[in-house]
Computed example of a mutant assay.
Amino acid sequence: MKTMIFLAMNLLLAWATYGQDGQFENGMAKGLALLEEAERTRDFGPAAALFERISEAEPQRWQPAYHLAYCHMMLAGEAMEEKEGGALSAHLDKAQAALDRALALAPQESEIVALQGYVYTGRIWKAPMVNGAKYSPKASAAYAKAIELNDENPRAYHLMGMHLFYTPSFFGGGAEAALPYLEKAAARFDAGKKTGEYGPVWGAFFNQELLQQAKQATE
């Protein structure tokens, strides 16, 4: 409860500050702080609300729209785990809407293209048997394009590895297929390169978990 109150107070303060001075830098700093907190608490609602406000105030910047889309992907994942189909679809739609704005601004940005693949993967969550054939190739193509656009982007390799890890082996997936991508992602996460001052930094922890599982499965 105290954590929720703390996050809500931070959100209100961030809104007030952004509304007063209109500084993109201040708003993003507060948004990224909320996002970092959300990675621990798994409550992405406050961060999503702030990034939505920033993206509306700064429509020429792709970063807030990207982070907004990422927040909704995390919320979609939680809805999937709770078997809340309506909420899952709603968050996927909101993620896509935000990502469409980011793609319009920077269509060749590897981070955005990789996250588009993640949204396609999210569509599979809703109904794997129905949506897998449609969205799995789209996700793979997006991840491959993201890697082509920026070979140093760890999230592009991580998401491709995750996609393959959870794809049945008879469809070309499995731990063995995923392992090289997860290893390359780990090396790039270790290198610590960032996509600009306000670019994403997520993925390293879960990639390490998947990498260990893939290694164990292929021993």
Rank of each mutant, 00 (worst) to 15 (best):
M4P: 12
I5Q: 13
A8P: 03
A8W: 06
L11R: 04
L11H: 04
L12P: 03
W15M: 10
Y18W: 12
Y18C: 11
G19F: 08
D21N: 12
D21T: 11
Q23M: 12
Q23N: 13
M28E: 01
M28P: 01
L35Y: 06
E36Q: 15
A38M: 04
R40E: 15
E52Q: 08
I54Y: 08
S55D: 08
E56V: 10
E56M: 11
E58R: 05
P59K: 07
P59D: 09
Q60S: 14
Q63N: 09
Q63K: 12
P64A: 06
Y66N: 00
H72N: 11
H72W: 03
M73L: 14
M74Y: 11
A76M: 09
G77H: 07
A79S: 14
M80S: 13
E82L: 11
E82Q: 13
K83G: 00
A90Q: 13
H91G: 13
H91Y: 14
L92E: 10
Q96C: 07
D100E: 11
R101N: 08
P107K: 08
E109A: 11
E109N: 09
S110L: 04
I112T: 05
L115T: 10
G117D: 03
G117L: 02
G117V: 01
V119Q: 00
V119Y: 00
Y120F: 11
Y120G: 00
T121S: 11
R123N: 09
W125N: 01
A127W: 07
N131T: 15
G132H: 01
G132C: 04
A133C: 05
K134Y: 05
Y135H: 08
A139R: 01
S140Q: 09
A141L: 04
Y143A: 03
Y143V: 01
A146R: 02
A146V: 00
I147H: 05
L149V: 04
N150D: 15
D151M: 08
E152H: 12
E152G: 13
P154S: 09
L159M: 13
M160P: 03
M160W: 06
M162W: 09
H163I: 03
H163R: 07
Y166T: 12
P168Y: 02
S169P: 06
S169F: 05
F170V: 08
E176G: 13
A177V: 00
A177M: 02
L179E: 05
Y181N: 14
Y181G: 02
Y181D: 07
L182Y: 04
R188F: 10
D190R: 09
D190Y: 06
A191R: 09
G192V: 03
K193F: 05
K193I: 08
K193N: 11
G196T: 07
Y198N: 12
V201F: 14
V201A: 15
G203T: 06
F205Q: 15
F205C: 09
F206D: 15
F206V: 05
Q208E: 13
E209G: 14
E209A: 13
L211M: 10
Q212K: 15
Q213V: 02
A214Q: 04
Q216T: 06
